[in-house]
Computed example of a mutant assay.
Amino acid sequence: MDSQIRGQERPKTYTKPPESRIVPADIVNPKFEDLVDLALLRVFDSASLLESRPPKLFPTAETVFAKYYAHDDWLVHGDLESEMGRMNYMLSKLPERGMPSECIAPVRSILSSASVLTAWRRTFPWLERIIKQETRRVTSLMQKQQGSPTAPCQKSRFIAVPVDYGTDRAASSQALQLWEGALREIVIGISEGHFEHVRTFLQIFTFLKDPLGCLESVSSKAVDIFTYMMTTLASSRSHMPGTVLKKLRWHAAAAQAAQEALFLSCPLLESVNYIHFTGHQQLPYGDVPLDDLPRSEFSIPGHVLRIIEEMLTRAPRKTGATVPSPRSQCHPTHPFQ
């Protein structure tokens, strides 16, 4: 297909689907370390150290607006099956996902400092106040839409048109600079064996991914997992003679490790009891009381039965993990056993 389109203008509908990959057997009764190993495979993949690409974590698949990214987007923003590529795309092309315009002043102050990661720590209380103010403003505007229903159980009481927070192109530009600066500094620190700024780096990552929902502090577990992944990657290089990671590859690995560490820090994953693989994606399952679910679709019997049927009809070849582990290359001490 590339040969047919090469030399002529590609249509806007020309997209790049996920790369084909070997689908592993589902993992029954997995341990938490199995999830860590799968995440580590994606970190190694981002560093271009794997010949066969691992499954992608659902729902962080390589789509935007329910469509695969355009081929030209891959050329401009890099590997869109990686967190690095998706962050570059989001910060460059989706200004509505950028940081609030009111954050421009504190972020400008951070960017003017000698160290982005050091300046973030002292500036975060200022950013925190702005984020809370913007959240209250958006919430207030949505609440005003609901009016005063005569009966407390009327459906209209719970319906409102979403209100966007205020942002603009200037805010997006500064967000991209903040991301590049934080990524550059954390990689330099890791290369020198310094991990004291990991929590700060993860805070910046969560802020850029979700500016209004980032106030929940980054857990110590996320910090430990990120540190473990990057340490394992660094250690593996000593067991691969002639392997030298370029700066851009270290950046991609750090971005992927940040996404994986924050996902794995979710307490629900401590009780994961099944890992399902299909196509190019990985989906972990865990037991959660229906009464605790914030969304209602899993209370629909038909939907639950379809999920169970999918798990039963895709029987694994054998019980236990079958996913290769990059840990076998360097034998580090696994902190999550």
Rank of each mutant, 00 (worst) to 15 (best):
2 D>E: 13
8 Q>Y: 10
8 Q>H: 15
18 P>K: 01
24 P>G: 10
24 P>I: 05
26 D>P: 11
31 K>W: 03
38 L>D: 06
40 L>S: 07
41 L>P: 00
41 L>K: 03
53 R>N: 04
54 P>H: 05
58 F>L: 05
64 V>H: 10
71 H>L: 06
74 W>K: 09
74 W>N: 04
77 H>M: 12
78 G>T: 09
81 E>Y: 07
83 E>C: 03
83 E>W: 11
91 L>T: 00
92 S>V: 07
93 K>C: 03
94 L>C: 05
95 P>V: 09
96 E>H: 09
96 E>T: 07
106 P>K: 00
107 V>K: 00
108 R>I: 00
109 S>D: 09
111 L>C: 03
115 S>V: 02
117 L>N: 01
120 W>Y: 11
125 P>W: 04
131 I>Q: 00
133 Q>T: 08
135 T>K: 09
141 L>F: 06
151 A>M: 11
157 R>E: 07
159 I>L: 13
160 A>G: 00
160 A>D: 02
161 V>W: 06
162 P>Q: 05
164 D>I: 01
164 D>R: 08
168 D>M: 02
172 S>G: 15
175 A>C: 08
176 L>I: 03
179 W>D: 01
182 A>K: 03
183 L>Q: 11
184 R>C: 15
188 I>N: 14
188 I>C: 12
190 I>K: 01
190 I>T: 10
192 E>M: 13
195 F>R: 08
195 F>W: 14
200 T>E: 14
202 L>C: 12
205 F>D: 13
214 C>M: 10
217 S>F: 10
220 S>F: 12
228 Y>F: 15
232 T>D: 05
233 L>R: 03
237 R>W: 01
239 H>M: 09
245 L>F: 05
265 S>P: 01
270 E>T: 05
275 I>V: 14
280 H>T: 13
289 P>T: 04
293 L>E: 02
293 L>A: 11
294 P>R: 02
295 R>M: 10
299 S>Q: 12
301 P>A: 10
306 R>A: 14
309 E>V: 05
309 E>N: 12
309 E>T: 09
312 L>E: 11
318 K>S: 15
319 T>A: 13
322 T>S: 15
328 S>F: 13
